[in-house]
């Protein structure tokens, strides 16, 4: 009776579920939120935002030509939010508030469900976002060495 369905096919009913006040949960795909969320292993619960979006929130949205994305807010502006995957060092273009589909409320790692409001998550998110510049510099240096070796 049970078989997999793509996210694109099911988006209309996810939308209906969220609008009704319910939640949706799924296993994440992709590596853009490493080390926090592991590809095809960790799970998230999402719901329609019922408060103002804040820095460090993880949100669910869709970009044309890219698909559905789950990334973290690194800046909130008057017109929208700027996001970045935890495994990325470049910010994305401004995303309007209306384009935000849902916000992550809970996540599951190693079979254990936790709230994004847990102390661990709060400390991790602040640390990770605010130390991005060091990872960016490190990657730049590594890339320079790689290029030199290749010559």
């Amino acid at each position: 009776m049970n078989k997999p369905i793509s996210l694109d096919d099911i988006f209309p009913i996810i939308s209906e579920q969220l609008v009704s006040g319910g939640t949706a949960s799924f296993t994440i795909h992709g590596t853009s939120m490493l080390p926090f969320l592991k590809d095809r292993k960790d799970k998230v619960w999402i719901t329609k935002p019922n408060r103002k979006l804040k820095k460090y929130d993880i949100i669910f949205y869709r970009l044309d030509g890219v698909g559905f994305i789950l990334h973290r807010i690194v800046k909130v502006t008057r017109d929208g939010v700027i996001c970045r995957g935890d495994n990325h060092t470049d910010n994305e273009p401004l995303l309007k508030f209306d384009d935000v589909i849902a916000i992550v409320t809970d996540y599951e790692r190693n079979g254990k469900k936790r709230s994004v409001d847990s102390v661990f998550q709060i400390l991790y998110s602040r640390f990770w976002v605010n130390t991005m510049i060091f990872r960016k510099v490190k990657r730049k240096i590594e890339s320079m060495f790689k290029n030199r070796k290749g010559k």
Binding site: I5, I10, I13, I14, E16, Q17, S20, G21, G22, T23, A24, S25, F26, T27, K43, W45
Partner: peptide, 10 residues
């Protein structure tokens, strides 16, 4: 679907 409840992909 469980309207208002949880929709779990898994």
């Amino acid at each position: 679907m469980n309207i208002g409840g949880e929709l779990s992909f898994n």
